[in-house]
Amino acid sequence: MGSGSLIALMIAAVAFSGIAILISKILLKTTHNIHKGEPYECGIPTIGPSWIQFSIGYYLFALIFLIFDVELIFIFPWAVVVKQLGWVAFVEILIFLFILFMGFLYAHKKKALKWM
């Protein structure tokens, strides 16, 4: 089957979730209450909104991830042909990984990988 199967699967996923939610909407009885829609934080009234400034640590890791993920995409096509290309490809990936590893060490030295 061709690429159409992906669309079929997507439609199946949406249909499955949609029907499941719809059935429960039809079956259940809703009640209304002022306190019902409040955020659940273990009974204590919430203080302030949660959409505020957030720890930058997560963002840093996402940035480093981005670099390595792009590297991963570069390695995939290389991995397919490395057996045919032989030593040339091996030396090239050594250079590539060396540069990358230097970047990794730099990030490590700058304490980007340290959780604060």
Binding site: S50, D69, L72
Partner: peptide, 25 residues
């Protein structure tokens, strides 16, 4: 709009993107 959810999602995001690299390699 819940602090627990936000923290959980952020942790989950950091965790999933990090471990994806070793899984990919």
């Amino acid at each position: 709009n819940n602090k627990y959810s936000l923290l959980g999602a952020m942790r989950s995001g950091a965790q999933i993107v990090s471990y994806e690299l070793s899984a990919g390699l």
